[in-house]
């Protein structure tokens, strides 16, 4: 009997809580169509929300419409969201931007960080390997374990794989004893630093940020090669946004992004400032991706 009563009370309380929570969810959805954007989860995934909510607040103020940031777990999810019009704006990597814009005719790259014009990857090694920094890719990398970042990353997979293939004239799985995909740049650093992989590669911005944050132990991990530069991260927008929010909206978003001077917002990326971009800028990325077969030709 007591058991039965307990069950009843528990049930009623439980449904009550659920109903109240549900109410908050329902009231959160506004009437006018909000601008939704996302970003590739390239580093420190716990802080994504914190980083990009600042951007959302800024955009909402300047564009005078509701702006929502939605976090995603994978690069491909951000592309799928862009393709399906679940987001209209996105902070992509070089490669994910190309893939997304190929899938949505009329979409444009509108801005990129100043640093993204000349982006660089750092190849890193656990110090126990004894490999030191060199001007070209060291030959004694062969036969070791190596981790890329995400499978869809530009600085963590595409460009590093291209440079590796160029130097060794072999595929990564032929060069190394084992090839892994950590998922993001911070994770690659962590895996090499802990010795889970002997070698790895990451975006130089993440290396610098983690170094400044004191998260890198130079006794355990060091840079062994800095790659040549290439264009990378960019803001891309769907071509049909003018139809939803009026003619000139696309240009307005572009100018608002270029006008960001707030250090705190820029630090979230982290970039010095944003400069204008166009789709042509990323043709080298497309060609490279086709060259190694990530995008087919």
């Amino acid at each position: 009997m007591i058991h039965y009563l307990f069950g009843q009370i528990f049930g009623v309380v439980f449904y009550g809580i659920l109903f109240l929570l549900g109410q908050t969810l329902v009231t959160n959805t506004a009437l006018a169509q909000p601008l939704v954007f996302t970003a590739i989860p390239d580093q420190d995934t716990e802080r994504l929300q914190e980083r990009f909510n600042k951007v959302a607040v800024y955009l909402q103020e300047k564009l005078a419409i509701e702006v929502i940031y939605i976090p995603v777990k994978t690069y491909s999810a951000s592309i799928a969201a862009f393709k399906n019009n679940a987001v209209q704006l996105a902070w992509f990597g070089g490669l994910s931007g190309v893939q997304a814009r190929l899938a949505v005719p009329g979409s444009q790259a509108i801005a990129l960080g100043e640093e993204d014009l000349n982006f660089v990857s750092y190849f890193i090694a656990h110090t126990s390997t004894g490999i030191t920094e060199a001007a070209t890719l060291p030959d004694n990398l062969a036969g070791r374990t190596f981790t890329f970042g995400s499978k869809g990353s530009t600085s963590g997979r595409l460009m590093p794989e291209y440079f590796l293939r160029q130097h060794f004239e072999k595929t990564p799985s032929q060069i190394f004893r084992r090839v892994g995909f950590s998922g993001n740049h911070s994770k690659s650093l962590q895996l090499v630093q802990s010795g889970s992989y002997e070698l790895g590669v990451l975006n130089y911005k993440v290396w610098e940020a983690e170094l400044a944050a004191g998260k890198i132990n130079l006794k355990k991990v060091r840079i062994i090669w800095k790659s040549p530069s290439y264009p990378d991260y960019n803001w891309s927008i769907r071509g049909d946004v003018d139809k939803i929010w009026g003619i000139g909206f696309l240009e307005k978003v572009k100018s608002v992004l270029l006008a960001i001077t707030d250090k705190e917002i820029l630090q979230a990326f982290p970039r010095k400032k944003f400069v204008a971009a166009d789709n042509k800028l990323f043709i080298p990325i497309l060609k490279t991706a086709q060259n190694i077969g990530i995008i087919r030709k």
């Binding site: 307990f6 069950g7 049930g11 439980f14 449904y15 549900g22 329902v26 959805t29």
Partner: peptide, 21 residues
Amino acid sequence: RWWLKPKFVVLFSILSWSVLP
């Protein structure tokens, strides 16, 4: 086992569908 009672399931499913974002 305390809150998943058969008699609640229908109500519960309706509630779930109604709050589904």
